[in-house]
Design a protein around this nucleic acid. Sequence first.
DNA 1: CCTACTTCCTTCGGTACTAAATTTAGTCAA
DNA 2: TTGACTAAATTTAGTACCGAAGGAAGTAGG
Lengths: 399, 399
Amino acid sequence: MTGQSPRGDLVPSGIVAMLGTRGPTSRTAIARNLGLSPATVTQVTKDLIARGVVEELESVPSNGGRPARLLGLVSRTGVALGAKVTADHVAVVTVELDGSVRSSGSHEFDPRAADALDRLGRILTQEVADLDEQLFGVGVGVPGSVDSQASGIVDAPTLGWRAAQVGPVLRQAVGTPVLVDNDVNTLAAAERLYGIGREHSSYLVVTIGRGIGCGIVVDGGIYRGANGGAGEIGHIPVWDPSTEPPPCTCGSTGCLEAYIGADGLVRTARGRGALGPRGTLAGLLRAAASGDESARTVYAEAGDLLGRALAGVIHTVDPEVVVLLGEGVDGWEYWNAGFEPSFRRSLLPARKAVPVFVEPWTEDQWARGAASLVLASPFDSAGNGGEQSRLVRARLGAS
Amino acid sequence: MTGQSPRGDLVPSGIVAMLGTRGPTSRTAIARNLGLSPATVTQVTKDLIARGVVEELESVPSNGGRPARLLGLVSRTGVALGAKVTADHVAVVTVELDGSVRSSGSHEFDPRAADALDRLGRILTQEVADLDEQLFGVGVGVPGSVDSQASGIVDAPTLGWRAAQVGPVLRQAVGTPVLVDNDVNTLAAAERLYGIGREHSSYLVVTIGRGIGCGIVVDGGIYRGANGGAGEIGHIPVWDPSTEPPPCTCGSTGCLEAYIGADGLVRTARGRGALGPRGTLAGLLRAAASGDESARTVYAEAGDLLGRALAGVIHTVDPEVVVLLGEGVDGWEYWNAGFEPSFRRSLLPARKAVPVFVEPWTEDQWARGAASLVLASPFDSAGNGGEQSRLVRARLGAS
DNA sequence: CCTACTTCCTTCGGTACTAAATTTAGTCAA
DNA sequence: TTGACTAAATTTAGTACCGAAGGAAGTAGG
């Protein structure tokens, strides 16, 4: 409804990104998906074709009317670099336009070192230098809250970072656009492009693992809240007033995460003797898999707690669907024994049937999500990415 | 960023609504508040002035540069009609552009009668007929979920309504635009125009009373969720696993509302002997006011539960501020004894200081909120109001 | 083969906005 | 009272989109 103005070529770059991430598409399909009129798509693609960015491909068979002419990118070479920062390493991947991982690697990293940011910059600079193809940009996922993707100022207690200038430092180091976001939001961005987001426009991406997180996608855009802190469901208070609440990494006690985050599970299991005093989460999972009832109970109770908390989140946000991700889903069948009953039971009648998809987890998913930040920026009409998104769009060929 | 097209004169009607609700304003201030360029405001106001809808008023003193020229509406006459439907009556008010209540009334109403909707239609038709000035539209607030303001299909268990065709029937009956929404959302709309929304663009409107509700405002727009069911925080599960959870009106058990809604409070108080078996909520409040410790404890515990649940909501939504409203705030000082400690204690460090405003409550506030739906529709760029908003805008003189 | 219909795409004219430059109207200091 | 400044409003010259209407390319039925 507004006009135009160099807010940054949202439409042309959106078309390019769409063709890159979803493959050849007809003009009308593009129009439907991006919410544009066919007329606009014709105009813009005409220009893109003239500039050699896009080409016409074969026609599709026709379903009743004039057959659609597919459009595709002339050159699909080019990657996005994604990095996920953790307490002891940085995982890095390169991702092609269609979401496939080209290469992946890992670097030791101490976020509490005095020169941590410089070191991170050197790691990424090296990765960038090793590439021999076009780089659209760098995405970084951190376990903490980020003011905005475009600036990239990070508060991450688990890394010991407070107002860390991640974005500015990295932009200085690598000469490309750099987008920074909360790690869960990066997964939400990946889902947006390559997962559930293709079929739904409003969903939750819930992660279980070390912490419990939640990315909120509304109308195709990541919802970040007033201060970039939305979705911190790991810190929903759930403690039972009659017991001593366990301490949480956030400094408070009785948070959901303190019970059912990786550390919480292990603590509970040890406390009950389901695990020896040196037992690990992997051990708990093995025990459950081998039929150990007490181990399974630990999981089931965690699932129960998660189910209740998530029902509350669904009542406040009302998404279409929920996606479950994270290291923790490995043991989902044991979680689920407690989750399903408590989750469904707690939902309002109108929402009893909200679908929950549990996706298999792979190691490089975090970093891949970070890379998705880059490729998702053309779709980011809310403007989370600001200037950096503009630069990415320019690199996508939609100058 | 898009173009134009008869999506319904958002800008001119937005300017008119702004002048109506906030009083005389300069062009540049309008531009800032509506997110437009000064050029656009100049153009549009020129047209409005030429059409006699808007006029130039005096200048303001000047703060360094050219003094701003205030613009105001030529005629500020005209009202919006608001109706709030409850289980036993319909409250109706007429509201002027600036938010002041011109008149109010109440009608007996049985929502479970076979001809309930027709009766509601007759009530409103009569009210409309009694008016002797321009009517911009009718807003209706219902305690339930509504598919969209524009259509107005209602599910409201407490009224016994299932897919009730409130919008269509009323539009048929009264010949004006009719907007229908969840009652809490109507309060959020009123806050948007006349309350906290003038200073913040992202906040929660939490109501305590018979039920517990929450309106979510994001970037100046009411967030309704995928199915119009966002903000149902009254049904967040909070029961303590070691006790028998109380039943809730929603059919489930252990919902927040079952504990701290009006009925829940009374049940608890009776169970503890803080109230006789025939005691009412008003009695509980009197007891607390007169210093009764057991009554105060009932309130404080409710406050504690609310604080914990609300902290969870804040972690997932991350609003700037929270506004507390509803019949229940009458006894807020007793709630607060339990609320403050538990609320603050449960918040993440970064959000410990989120402000909570408790506003005084008046009887006609629900109906006034419903009327606000009408006057808020010109600001509704998300398009919740659809066709009905268009009609309202046309009546505001911005044809 | 012709006609009707469907779907995809394009052309055309118009509209609602914008940024940038400019004009207007005031303050303040010397 | 002149000049430097600031802020408000306007003018100008675009731009990015849209709707409506129509052309293009197929299918389905006669």
